[in-house]
Structure formats: structure tokens, C-alpha cells
Write a protein that binds this DNA or RNA. Structure first.
Lengths: 209, 209
DNA sequence: TAATCAACCAAGCAAGCGCTTGGTTGATTA
DNA sequence: TAATCAACCAAGCGCTTGCTTGGTTGATTA
């Protein structure tokens, strides 16, 4: 999970590594998780073999199981770490904004920056490969996923009360999640449309003029 | 091609079955394709075995290959038929609308109705399992997919010229596709929000008040 | 200097995979 | 009545899968 973002996000990640919440990307386990996120995103969980993953980091397939009990635990590791990072990062981002429009923009900007940044592969996997995770492990992540959704929901409810958004917060939340996650499959940074532009366009969908 | 009169969606499907463009859902091949669409959507292409598929329609796994040369051809069949149906259906739908707002609404209503209707599983597979299809077979479907996108693009460009939509047509098109496809993973018809409501909410995102 | 330990290798196993083959069935046609 | 044919079965083949086992290595520590 390479950063590649400016500001305090890099520092936040370093804190989380230091406190053991996410693995050091320079460690063998961290390198495996980054490679797994990349491969699971490109070929899906079922479409990725442990031999693919091992080859990607330059070891033999059996050696993976020195770091993970089984393949499900690798997917769990990818998802657990990215959902923790998403939560911590969004909490920090929202703390900087006080008025409604800025807070809604923060939601959108945060999620777009995340999915097109270093943790983007892991976030895509979290969204699109959820069904591949064992039920037992899903339960262990669910609370953190719901916490993230509550941050969105609360912020959108404020904006709705303030008359800034036109449709029901829970519907808007889902529509925006869908639009933003899908952008990983078409938007390429560095083209005509800058990331700031994309944020602005998405915000235009959400809020009144 | 089609014989002029744009009838109901059911009639359109019957015409396509009669002309051999899509298989009869009552035939063995049609039942296999419907079951494949369901399973590929639920568990992914790689996560679905030919034994799963055979069991679902009540035959043995080897018997599948009396109808399809290999597993890739099954995925190809699912995608080829649904993309044909989507194109024919959207062409017919747009023919009924003349002014900009109605045409944009038709795009949204059509796609939402499709993904939450009978061909919904196949459409989800088309969108989310595209990478699982062999490159050779992707090429054979690409032109029809692009034709569908051109219908969207042209309609949104008209709406943009008319001042009805606020952001670039190609960006809006992608954002809406993402939002609509994702609705298959959260929206359940029969709840508080009717399908008409969902169409109206999505349209609200797209167009000016 | 000896002991320890994380990280990895080498080899392979049992189960499951896509797919093949030769044959059976029962309805339709000549 | 005989011939034909789509649809399917029964059995299994060769390969890949996730994972296990026992051993090696080279850096770190006592």
C-alpha cells in the first residue's frame, strides 16, 4: 500500500504502521499484501492463484504460508488494512471542514483520491471482491465498513437538512459510491481531466447549484 | 434488422428469439445461459465451476460441452446475447422520445429497468466480468458495446447543447453507468423506494432543475 | 562462537478443475 | 417399422489448485 499522496496522509499511514494497524509495505508481508491487492484487482480473487502471487514477489508458492494461514487470510488482510486506513483518513479529512458544502466535497475528494492513489487496488478489491471473502471474516470487517458509511450518511444528512442536496441521503450515498468506485475502470489521471476536475464534476452531481 | 414497429420489450425479445439472435430460455442452451448468468454474477466467472452450472440445471458437467465448446464460450454467449438485447431495446426506447429531458430519462430508465429486470444478471456479468472473457471474444462484442455507448453519448451531447446537463457528456456517461450498475448491489425493488422513484432520483443527479 | 529465528526452498499430495470419449435414451421423422 | 438425431450419462484423464512437510540459509543475538 504505497502512499503517493501529499499532506498528512503519508504521516497518518506511518503512524498506523508504527502502531501495527497496517503492515510495513517494505516487509515481506506488506509486499505480499500489495501484490495481492494488485492481482486480486486485475484478475479477481478466484482468478488469482497463490503461484501468481508468489511469482509476483519473487518467492515460491509454499513460502506464502509462512506469512498467511490460507488464501482467505490474504484477502482478509488486504481488506482489513484498507478499511482501517479509509476510516482513519476520512475522519482526519472531515475534521478540517466545518460547513456543509466543504464536508460533502471532502467525502467525494477523499474517496476519489483514495481509489486512484496508492491504496486504490485494495479499495477496489474491498468493493468488488467482497463476496469472495469468507462469511466469518466478513463479519470481522463489517463494523469498520459500517463506521465508514456512517461518516458518509451523517455528513449527507446534514447537507440534506441544510438544503444543499436534493435527494435522500442514503440513495445519494449509494449512487455516489457506485459512480466513484467505477471511475477506477475508466478514469486515467494525467489526461485532459485533472483529479480536481473530476472531484468538481462529481460534486456538481450531488449538490444544488 | 428490425421490422419497424417498436413494440413492448417482451415482444422485442420474442422477435430476437425467433430470428435466432438470442436463445430461447426454454431450450437447454437458453436454460444454461440463464443459469450461467446467475452463477457468474453471484460467484464470478472464475468462482463458478462447470459442475456448479450443470448441477443448477440438473445435468452432469460433461453434458455442458454438447452445447458449448468450452467455458469461455458460455461467458461469451451470456454477454453477446445481453448486449444485443440492450442495443435493440435502447434503440426502440429512444425512438419514442423526442425532447432532451425525456431522452435522458429514457437512458436512465432503460438501464435501471434492464439491470433490475430479467436480463439483470447477464448485464451485471457483462459489466463486472468483462476481464474474464478471452481477448478474442472481447473483440467480437466490442463493436456492439461501443454502439450502445454511442447511443448514450449522442443523447447526452444533445442534452448538453440544450443546456440541460452541466458536465461533459463523456464524464457524465461514465459516472451514471457506475452509479446504475452498482445499484444492483443495494437496491431491492418492493421497498420504500419504487423503481420510478429511483429513476427520478438518478435523473435529478444528471440534469439541471 | 554458538544459538536462535524469520524467511524461504524443494518436493509433492489430495482434491478439484475443464474437458473428452464412447455409449444410452427417447422423441421425431421417413 | 426402421432410421435418425438432440440431449444427456458414465467414467475418467491430464493438469492445476491450495496447502503441507521437512529442511536450508543467512542475519541477528546471547
Amino acid at each position: 500500500m504505497n502512499t503517493g499522496e501529499p499532506g498528512s496522509f503519508g504521516q497518518l499511514l506511518r503512524d498506523m504502521i508504527a502502531s501495527g494497524q497496517i503492515s510495513d509495505p517494505a516487509s515481506p508481508k506488506g509486499r505480499l499484501l500489495a501484490a495481492a491487492a494488485k492481482l486480486f484487482r486485475e484478475k479477481g480473487y478466484s482468478g488469482t492463484t497463490v503461484r501468481d502471487l508468489a511469482a509476483d514477489v519473487g518467492i515460491l508458492s509454499g513460502s506464502i504460508f509462512h506469512h498467511f494461514k490460507n488464501k482467505d487470510e490474504i484477502l482478509f488482510g488486504v481488506m482489513k488494512e484498507v478499511v482501517s486506513a479509509m476510516n482513519a483518513s476520512l475522519v482526519a479529512r472531515l475534521a478540517l471542514e466545518s460547513e456543509s458544502r466543504g464536508r460533502v466535497k471532502a467525502l467525494i475528494e477523499h474517496e476519489l483520491t483514495f481509489i486512484h492513489g496508492g491504496p486504490g487496488n485494495a479499495m477496489s478489491v474491498l468493493v468488488y471482491e467482497w463476496r469472495a471473502l469468507s462469511e466469518a471474516r466478513q463479519e470481522q470487517i463489517l463494523e469498520q465498513r459500517e463506521a465508514y458509511e456512517r461518516l458518509w450518511q451523517g455528513t449527507l444528512e446534514e447537507a440534506h437538512t441544510a438544503g444543499l442536496i436534493r435527494i435522500e441521503p442514503d440513495v445519494l450515498r449509494q449512487l455516489l459510491h457506485g459512480a466513484i468506485a467505477w471511475s477506477a475502470n475508466w478514469y486515467k489521471p494525467g489526461g485532459d481531466l485533472s483529479m480536481d476536475d473530476l472531484v468538481e464534476r462529481t460534486l456538481t452531481l450531488a449538490v444544488q447549484e
